[in-house]
Design a protein around this nucleic acid. Structure first.
Lengths: 163, 163
DNA sequence: GCTGAAAGTCGGCACCT
DNA sequence: AGGTGCCGACTTTCAGC
């Protein structure tokens, strides 16, 4: 098992592989032929590289990015959570619950003053408020919750690696 | 100009539109024909809907998701920053600088104890350390920096809306 | 590991319901 | 609005270099 979530580099990458990844990162629906043109390779050679990158897990998937604002997800927040860690079994229970909440779009175990940092998305302030009060607050061992409501997203390049 | 970054809903969406978005969100490279099958529409009708969703900005793009660990980005951190806001012009300067740093993958202006929350990705602890000391610390008006190093990513659904 | 050709498949458009 | 049919373009496999 992979307890630490480590992923070792499984293949040798050359400059063309990096160009392929960079291009597909910016335009995931580019046709294989256009991609082949851009990296100066024949379509078949290009496709084989893309398949290899996919098979080795370097390309983990392709996704449409939707407009959260337009779809009604108007509020984002960063929430720091401290739990009572005197009960080790609460940790797993906490993570399982956190994972099941749709409002939690990302969750991290962190070093520092808090135990967890949660990234929250909700359809407005009332929905966020009731999430905190009725869901987060009721988790076992909850000790402290500190919310930072996002007023403006200044940079949004998560999921875009600077290769 | 759009000072608040608001995006109004520009079109009426029905159940099929939501299914299309959900499917493309999970598999951005699905062929139009397969997508049409899944939503029980003819390929041409399906393609027209997808184009409309793209044109109205509901689908904002398609992107390959790469494996950050395997590509050497081993360290993630949430960094809270407080700046001296007695000088209004420092705000824009700060944001501009923050945007130019590759290590900053996301940046938010937040309400609460801190002014900004930064999401950092670096190729290891030394790189992160030198980023904080040599870049962040030297920004004008910097008052306080509080780092939370990510020990484990428990949930990672940013960019996946629960429709 | 790349190229080129062949066969199946798809996207995009015109036209019709 | 959604469906059908067509043609050029694309994807994908495989033999050969």
């Amino acid at each position: 098992m992979d307890l630490l979530g480590e992923r070792k580099l499984r293949m040798q990458l050359d400059a063309i592989d990096f160009r392929i990844m960079t291009i597909l990162q910016a335009n995931g629906r580019l046709s294989n032929q256009d991609l082949a043109d851009k990296v100066a390779l024949s379509p078949s050679a290009c496709l084989r590289r893309v398949r290899t990158l996919e098979d080795n897990g370097l390309i983990r998937g392709y996704h449409a990015r939707l407009d959260a604002q337009q779809l009604g997800f108007e509020l984002e927040a960063i929430v720091h959570v401290t739990v009572d860690h005197s009960r080790p079994d609460w940790h797993d229970a906490f993570l399982q619950q956190v994972n099941s909440f749709d409002e939690v779009v990302a969750a991290y175990v962190v070093s520092g003053a808090s135990n967890y940092v949660l990234h929250i998305r909700a359809k407005g302030l009332p929905a966020f408020s009731s999430f905190v009060v009725e869901k987060l607050n009721k988790l076992p061992g909850m000790r402290d919750i500190c919310s930072y409501i996002v007023l403006k997203t200044v940079k949004d390049k998560l999921g875009e690696l600077p290769l």
